[in-house]
Design a protein around this nucleic acid. Sequence first.
DNA 1: CATCGTTGTTCCAACGATGTAAAGCCCCAA
DNA 2: TTGGGGCTTTACATCGTTGGAACAACGATG
Lengths: 329, 329
Amino acid sequence: MATLKDVARLAGVSVKTVSNVVNGYSFVKPDNRRRVEEALEATGYRPNLGARNLRRGRTGFIALVLPELSIPYFAELAGLVITAAQEHEWNVLIEQTFGTLAGERAALASLGPHLVDAAILSPEALLVDDFQLSVPAVLLGEHAVDVPISRVGIDNVAAARTAVRHLISLGRTRIAAIGAHPHRGTAALRLEGYRTALAEASLPFSGDLVVPALNYHRADGAAAMRSLLDMPTPPDAVFCFNDLLAIGAMRTAAERSLRVPGDLAVVGFDNNEESVYSSPSLTSVAPDKGAIARAAVDLLHRRVESPDDALEDVETPFSLLVRESTVAG
Amino acid sequence: MATLKDVARLAGVSVKTVSNVVNGYSFVKPDNRRRVEEALEATGYRPNLGARNLRRGRTGFIALVLPELSIPYFAELAGLVITAAQEHEWNVLIEQTFGTLAGERAALASLGPHLVDAAILSPEALLVDDFQLSVPAVLLGEHAVDVPISRVGIDNVAAARTAVRHLISLGRTRIAAIGAHPHRGTAALRLEGYRTALAEASLPFSGDLVVPALNYHRADGAAAMRSLLDMPTPPDAVFCFNDLLAIGAMRTAAERSLRVPGDLAVVGFDNNEESVYSSPSLTSVAPDKGAIARAAVDLLHRRVESPDDALEDVETPFSLLVRESTVAG
DNA sequence: CATCGTTGTTCCAACGATGTAAAGCCCCAA
DNA sequence: TTGGGGCTTTACATCGTTGGAACAACGATG
């Protein structure tokens, strides 16, 4: 592997001059610049990023801390973050927490200025209560507790309200919610949006129709739906706090031979690609994941460039995509 | 951020002694060791990996080059690779190629000894024909062309044969295949397995029943299925070269009001989590993804430790998981 | 012709860690 | 007392890069 020294020797100039050419410094004699460029070409020089970053005090990496890549929402998001990070010449380091506090603590502990320049966090457990991070960070989702840290996300209350209003507009009156969670900030806000929409339509709120989910996997949605269908008067619609729960719920409905949307209308949240091809396809709240990824990365970039910028709270757009699970195709 | 120098000053020893303690060098006086450990604790020292790796000539990273994280198979695999890599104190750098030759070239170009110690490649386009990599690498899947490089994967011919034999055992006689591809090594092998199974059962092979797919997304499966169902005599079963194609195919079947498996049996490949909860759930060839991830990482680790080991070709196990898309629940 | 500012180049130190060589210590045998 | 050898520590160079100061060359200016 060629180093600056090799290139310099070949071009007959000093190492620093080569460095200047590589970094686009203006004042280099055309003649020398040409010779250096030829030498760069000839040796196939690639800067040693480790050395460069050591010198510059940067690492060239950002961390993306998320529960699990096997969850489609996070996989899609991770792909978009990687793409967004490339714009700023950042590489992305993915850490999985598996949704546990221990996992989140471990991920945070392994981070540090020596490893990454900044971090994007998608906490699920308590994480933020003992929050102590040595690099600029941004939270995706919601604040679990009141900690000074930037945030990027959608208006969860408004999104949930939109979803439930859609169900109400279809004439549904017994609308259940799946996904309540003791610690998740987003869960509380989505529940709030659900209650607001019910209240606006003068529909009664019943705690029986709110089913918790400790994890947001398909199996949890299926189990929650079973408990709802075992009720004396089952719901005629269900709002799930993410698409996986909704897929699980639809699976249970199918097993019980319920027609969706005839007997039961279902709305999800996240708009996974999977939901477009399920049978029936799933109506879902669609956050603009690309916007979230870009906003988070851009925000971090600003913060790294000027560390004492004010904290930010970026709200990204969302939309409701109506599909067969609420309106028969 | 504390450096070795800070710790050394605090403990009243030389930098090297601290380095020795940190790296578990045996000959340090108990007294000094204790003082150094206290100082390490007090300063919260964490080694600067960039500097360490610069000195050691390692980067501490491996690359995982794959088409797209939004494809569930690769997302699941990536998660497992990250976990496996941690065992060897490696961090994983994910590069997306989007299945294009240009993307694969770009990913390869950005790699190099200065960035990663090794690379795991999941090529889709031609990639390997102009293959020139400066670090140890392993291919997941199949050799597109004959290039000296290690490989990890399942026996695709046997896997496809198993899948098609299952369909035959159910009494299906017009069995289609979706996913033929001009450049993909796995596609050719799966097609071979398909033909072998047909031949073994003395079923005729018909080119009409083999549908190509340029991408392996849900939409491609849906389109392929439409073309099959538009035939004068449509198939009574279809073997899809991955689960996404199968999900798309089942979607089309549903749109045409075909019963699965009654009118059409469907088998996929990859065993995505998604396929367990689809309606009907999908029978699928299940490669042991954990085994693939571990084998790939372990192989690279051996190769990095002793660079002139022989190339390896590791075969990992697979199984066929029979679900509702072939045998009604 | 001395001076000056601009442009271009080089030398040196430094980022934080580790390998090497050498020096210091201590104990024991000659 | 000397010397040898095992343990323990240190000074120094080094990995590849960049920032800063110093220096050199140059035409323009007074």
